[in-house]
Design a protein around this nucleic acid. Sequence first.
DNA 1: TGACAGGGTGTTCGCCGGACACTATGGCGG
DNA 2: CCGCCATAGTGTCCGGCGAACACCCTGTCA
Lengths: 229, 229
Amino acid sequence: MSHTYDYPRPAVTVDCVVFGMDDEDLKVLLIRRGVEPFSGRWALPGGFVRMDEALDDAARRELEEESGIRPSHLEQLYTFGAPDRDPRGRVITVAYFALVKLSAHHLHASTDAREAAWFSVWDTPKLAFDHAEVLGTALQRLKGKVRYQPIGFELLPPKFTLSQLQRLYEVVLERELDKRNFRKKILAMDLLEELDEVEQDVSHRAARLYRFDHKKYRQLEKAGFNFEL
Amino acid sequence: MSHTYDYPRPAVTVDCVVFGMDDEDLKVLLIRRGVEPFSGRWALPGGFVRMDEALDDAARRELEEESGIRPSHLEQLYTFGAPDRDPRGRVITVAYFALVKLSAHHLHASTDAREAAWFSVWDTPKLAFDHAEVLGTALQRLKGKVRYQPIGFELLPPKFTLSQLQRLYEVVLERELDKRNFRKKILAMDLLEELDEVEQDVSHRAARLYRFDHKKYRQLEKAGFNFEL
DNA sequence: TGACAGGGTGTTCGCCGGACACTATGGCGG
DNA sequence: CCGCCATAGTGTCCGGCGAACACCCTGTCA
């Protein structure tokens, strides 16, 4: 079946930059392409938008189809539409930005025969299309946003230690933070629930676990509170 | 001439939210539609993206065609793609956000038979499509961005008084600012060039004029300086 | 039992943001 | 010409917050 229009139309895709965090590093999800163009190259998960589908829904669907992941945070990032960004012709892509708790998503291998894997964001292979630029934009966004919105927690397991949280901020912001000042500030916000649990299976003194209190955050937010760093 | 594709494709447009500032209020540029759908209604300037044209270029072109305006600041805002946002079918619009010096753009009336006019952003007529939502998103962006990037100056004439600048911030941020603190802070940044001129034709003491020093800003920016409020 | 690998904790100081009120000028009208 | 009006322009104090900074604690493992 074919479709005919009076004027030429670009194709529209969505692509997702999905970030996850393991104990050392910030990771991004990539898919190895199995078809031309750029067959064999790594690329961001994504695909064509259906005619009856909202853009956000398309992003979620493609992500789930290609990796099985349902992100805990998803937002639109930027729309890339350089006329020559896809060798097949005019393709405009609406890029999305997603955060997942890596621990909860041990990639059940390739859901539909495509290979998916996590890469350190500082050390990715050469990417297809303009996906390196998209990734760069997403990193900037993450770096900017993490300081004034509590989205960093979406990258950590539900229960986490303050050291994990600090490492996360250090990796994302690309600078070291003072342990005492960091703890003082984050605890002063009163957004973390101190649990009666400590981490397990570590070969040194075990750290206390905390949980982010979404409900309290929403309350404070309404009252004009601003999360910052 | 017609164009045929294997899969259906959405149409892609750009729409521009153009802000200007007069002595009292923040304004937005609207165009009265002359064709269906929403004929007679006011809408944001915009139109279809050409096949060989970057998105930014499309935004600039449509804006110039419909109003003669060449904005001093233009950036992508957000992409709106709800399946039912246009009664003609699937139309995805990439919205842009633009700032102009109102004084320099006394709308040479309708460049191509369409009616264009400035409206107070707090008091617009009912808008076509989902343009009210687009405008709301743009206002949020302006409000957020004006505090940590010196884009407010794009809304003022090249030479302005500190009172004009303060009024601009008050209108955009929707709150009153203390005159002494505002002046202290903005002057401390050392980004304003104090001119040997005062405003003319006012029926009270004339205020000194200042000019924003773009060059100095770029230097400081490189050195890690951060503009704030 | 000692060494190692993080965990956890307070104080000081300088700066900046916020609150706050009066004098100075210039135009205009009476 | 004098007084009024409308806006311009100016400085201080205080409290809070961010930045710098070092040592003891605890649990594990060899």
